[in-house]
Structure formats: structure tokens, C-alpha cells
Design a protein around this nucleic acid. Structure first.
Lengths: 233, 233
DNA sequence: TGTGACGTAAACGTCGTACTTTTTGTTGGT
DNA sequence: ACCAACAAAAAGTACGACGTTTACGTCACA
């Protein structure tokens, strides 16, 4: 999945970002702008803009007289959805998926607790609708439809928490769920227990039961982690 | 606090980012690259590179025939440390500080629990050293020294958790603590209770008591949130 | 009067080139 | 062995030209 439509900049950025995230250019390797321009058959202008963006993500560092050097993983802006997408497409998807799932297990229970206090009636209704959608698509190889409702569900919870930082994690969660559904890191049909938990979570939020919402979300997270342990090495 | 050394690019980026984060350019406002080039007295080349970076942070969107339009807050990459710095320097520091502190209250307890299981002896030693440093600087207007140890302490815990996503939140926490210490959102001397909690947390991690580590970190977070309630409107 | 096709100009996108600045490796002398 | 001056390499910056998309106004026609 590339970023968006045409545009030389987009193409070069996506290609280079993907390669670096995949480890094809180990940390310390230097890339010269002239070479890149030649390789992609674009002007140095385009390459420089790409390098500037990669630099803002801390994937590379540009220094005079030396070139564009690839930075070690520890320096990367791993919360940038773009970087996450690149990494999930690359080699260490398992590690990445696990890190992100642990992150979810820390955030989402708290967010759900807040959502139980702050959710508007509209959000509660949308949540219930998503839960029902998950039930309806939980059988018979409708993984894509299920995924859609699942993403929407978690996004609503994060938004309803009222905390901006939680809300903005919706994209990350979406990437995780999507990356998990594709790439065969999931059973053919979703875990029935997880479906039930989502339904009950929607109820808990609607009734304003913060403790229950937090507990149920923790259970969902535990299930997701366990699923990873089983299906990923 | 600007980004780094000289360089036209850096200056323009920092100025524009700061202005947008401060809300000086409301969402929907269009900036033309030619005007920006004139205003900063730089070439369009430099402006274009800056715009590309701003675009990668989703602060602006560049479209043909219309210009560079400022995007609404909901679209921004609020986990980018650079964006966080800009926002903390701007108008809605209180809101931002609260969001980030809630985020910390969700993450750090889990991270501390993991750290209690995974921390190396070296990390435990460093943690204890930081805690002692906090004690030593907790009285007599040594806020800068205290801040330094505080940041180091939390960074070690996040790193020791063994989870990459947690570890990379160290920069965010550092920004929060720094932004809180400067800007008078803190008492003249740190809360003695907080200092004690840090010392006990270092012990809990050293002894591998995950439950205690998680509980103590939660208490620290509650204290920080309470402090915000008292000192910020 | 309303509507749709069409043309135009405004703004970004891309390119090529020339020049500047910083950094680094090397050379040469003591 | 050390230090200083020099030269080259690569990014940084500037400028001007042209391409490309697309919003918007205009005009003809119903």
C-alpha cells in the first residue's frame, strides 16, 4: 500500500522509506543525492525534498561533505503512521506487531474507561452499531468486512475518550488491525470470544461503567497478545 | 528552544511550524510559496523543502492552483517530538500538557511493570543513581538539576521496559517534564512525596516487583495530574 | 435566466545549472 | 610525529525556465 496518487516525490519517498525501514540500507550507510537522482531518474531537487522529509522522520541524517547517512532504528520516529506502514510492510513485521499490540494494551483500557465517562449518545450508538456489524461479519470468511467494523469500533472508543493523544492513535490501531488481518496473522474467522467482548464493551460504555469498560478492553488486549503468541514466531 | 544550528531551512521550518502550532494561521488559511520566499528572503527551493516537511507532519497540505493550506489540528502528527515542542511553546500549552500527562499515566505504569521484569543490573543501578540525584536536588531551587535527573529516570524506565514504542516515548516525556518545569507550571521545590515515590520505584524495579512498580508509577502519575489541576486553569 | 462547455491564468511540480559553504582528507614542512 | 595550509567532495542555496493541474470566470446556447 503506497501513500497516494502520482507524483515523483511520493514515489521516491515511498520507495526509499520502504527500503530503509526494511533494513536494506543498514545504519551508517551513506546515500549521495546525485546517485539517488540518477537511480530514480529525477532531478536533484526532488531527491533533496525527499531527503528532507526522511530527515524529519529521523530515518536519515544529511551532513555536508559526507552525504545522507542512514540512522539506527532507535532514532526513528516510530509513531509516524507512515513509518509504521513502512515497517509493517517490511521484514520485522512480527516484532513491530508485538510492540504495537503491547502499546495498545496499555492505552486502550484507559481510553475505554474515559470513553465510558465522556462518550456522547451518538458515539454510543455508533459503537453499538459497529459491534453488531462485527457480529454479523464474524463468520464465513468475511474478514474484510469484520476488519472495517473492528477498526471503526476502536477508533470510536479512542475518540470518545476525549483525549487528543489517544484519539490520534486511531491511525496506528488501524494499521495494526489491517496488518494483522492481511499477512495471515489471524485465524480464518475471528475469535468468537473477542466478538462477545466487543459487544459487552459497547454496553459498558453506553451505561457509563468505566471499570467494566477498562476491564473488558484489557481482556481484548490479552486475547490479541495471546493470538500473536500462537500465530507469530 | 529552536531545533539546531544554523541553516536557512531550519530557521524557516522552525518559524513556520511554531506559528502554525500557535494557531497564528488558522486551518484553511492558504500560504503561497512565493510569498513565503519573499517574507523570509530565501529562495523558493528552501520554502518548498520546508513545506514538504510540514506536509509530512500533516500540518499543511499543498495543492496545485490553490496553495499551501493549513490543516486542522485533528490531522497533525501530534506524536512528532518537533510538533510537541512547537505546541508546548505556543498558546494551548495547558491543554497539551494535560493530554500528554494523561498519556503518560496510561503508558508509564505498564512500562514500569515490564521494566521490573526486564531491567538489567546496569539499568537498575542507573535508576537508583537518578533517584538519589533527585533527592539531592529536591531542595533549594535546583530545579534544573532536578529536571535532568527526573528526565533520565523516566527515560531509563521506558527503555528498560524492553518495548520499543515505550522507549521512544522518552523524548515526549522529556518534553513534558521540561515544559512543566519551565513556564511556572510547578512549585518552587518538587513535591517531596513524588521524590519518595521515585526512590521506592527504583527499589521495586531492582527487586523485580512488577505489581509494586506499576502501582507506584500510577501514584506518581496521579500526583502529576493533580499538580496540573492545581497550577493550570 | 440558468446551465454547461471551454479557455485562461494562477499556483504548485519539476528540471538544469551555477555558485557557495562546510567538512574532511591529504600533503608538505618543521 | 605533529601541525598547518590546501584541495576536493558533497550538500546547501539561488535563479530561471517550463510543465501540469485545476479553480474560476466567460461566453454561447437553450
Amino acid at each position: 500500500m503506497t501513500t497516494q496518487g502520482p507524483g515523483l516525490h511520493t514515489h521516491v519517498l515511498d520507495t526509499l522509506g520502504l527500503e530503509i525501514a526494511a533494513g536494506e540500507h543498514p545504519p551508517g550507510q551513506v546515500l549521495r543525492t546525485d546517485e539517488l537522482a540518477q537511480r530514480f531518474d529525477v532531478s536533484r531537487t526532488v531527491v533533496r525534498e525527499v531527503v528532507r522529509v526522511l530527515e524529519s522522520m529521523h530515518l536519515v541524517e544529511s551532513r555536508r561533505r559526507v552525504g545522507v547517512t542512514v540512522r539506527p532504528t532507535e532514532a526513528w520516529n516510530v509513531y509516524d503512521p507512515q513509518v509504521i506502514r513502512w515497517r509493517l510492510a517490511g521484514a520485522d513485521r512480527p516484532r513491530q506487531l508485538r510492540s504495537l499490540t503491547v502499546l495498545r494494551s496499555a492505552i486502550e483500557p484507559v481510553a475505554a474507561g474515559l470513553a465510558a465517562r465522556n462518550a456522547t449518545p451518538e458515539q454510543c450508538a455508533a459503537l453499538t452499531e459497529c459491534a453488531l456489524g462485527m457480529v454479523a461479519t464474524s463468520r464465513g470468511q468475511q474478514l474484510e468486512g469484520y476488519l472495517e467494523h473492528d477498526i471503526a469500533f476502536h477508533r470510536i472508543v479512542l475518540n470518545a475518550s476525549g483525549n487528543e493523544m489517544f484519539a490520534r492513535l486511531g491511525d496506528v490501531v488501524a494499521e495494526v488491525l489491517a496488518g494483522r488481518t492481511h499477512h495471515q496473522v489471524m485465524f480464518e474467522d475471528p475469535d468468537p470470544a473477542a466478538v462477545t467482548l466487543h459487544v459487552r464493551l459497547a454496553e459498558a460504555v453506553r451505561e457509563g461503567d468505566a471499570a467494566a469498560a477498562e476491564r473488558l478492553t484489557k481482556e481484548i488486549a490479552v486475547g490479541a497478545l495471546h493470538e500473536l503468541d500462537v500465530l507469530a514466531p
